[in-house]
């Protein structure tokens, strides 16, 4: 067992955990932050994307111990300070960018990382960036549209409502 201290969503936490505990389990079971989801066991699906020191990572690819001293943000830490949805979350709701909601936390975390490095991505750049996030419900149409909208681009010409 090792003591691990990190800052999660602005709050410092210390837990004594096994060395082989993955970050997904640390967040979900130790901290009960269950918004980070596990959709596969090969790091393909992206439902567990979080930010570690500002970088988007799949939480299933890191041990909790590797995040010692890091600043971690999960989906639970993404809303505005007053609790309202942030720009990306709001765009997902406005443009129906989610259905069952299971891939959604990872999608929002990836989208947020994308817009930080590329504030006005093209459709193709968004689709390419989401390579590591699988959604089975939406056919991606409204996810891509929501991210375009969240970046302040006009989506009125995109087919359908």
């Amino acid at each position: 067992m090792v003591d691990v201290t990190m800052k999660v969503n602005g709050k410092t936490v210390t837990k004594s955990v096994k060395g082989n505990m993955l970050m997904t389990e640390f967040l979900r079971e130790e901290l009960r932050l269950t918004g980070t989801h596990v959709g596969c066991d090969t790091s393909q699906c992206g439902a567990c994307v979080i930010h570690v020191n500002g970088n988007a990572v799949k939480a299933c690819t890191m041990f909790a111990g590797e995040c010692a001293g890091a600043e971690v943000t999960t989906i639970e830490g993404m809303a505005n300070k007053d609790g309202s949805l942030n720009v990306i979350q709001q765009a997902f709701q406005d443009h129906h960018g989610l259905q069952c909601g299971f891939c959604t936390p990872g999608m929002v975390m990836s989208a947020s990382a994308l817009l930080k490095e590329n504030p006005k991505p093209s459709e193709a750049e968004i689709r390419h960036y989401l390579e590591g996030n699988i959604c089975r419900c939406t056919g991606y149409h409204n996810i891509v549209k929501a991210i375009l909208a969240a970046s302040g681009q006009d989506v009125s010409a995109i087919a359908a409502e």
């Binding site: 979900r28 079971e29 932050l33 269950t34 918004g35 980070t36 989801h37 596990v38 999960t74 989906i75 639970e76 993404m78 809303a79 949805l85 979350q89 997902f92 709701q93 406005d94 129906h96 989610l98 909601g101 299971f102 959604t104 936390p105 929002v108 409502e161």
Partner: peptide, 23 residues
């Protein structure tokens, strides 16, 4: 009416309650 979905708020903030979230 194309009303926005009320369930989205919980899904977008990590507050959904899926079966694996139940202990």
């Amino acid at each position: 009416a194309s009303q926005k979905r009320r369930e989205d708020v919980r899904f977008l903030t990590g507050a959904g309650q899926y079966t694996d979230d139940i202990n």
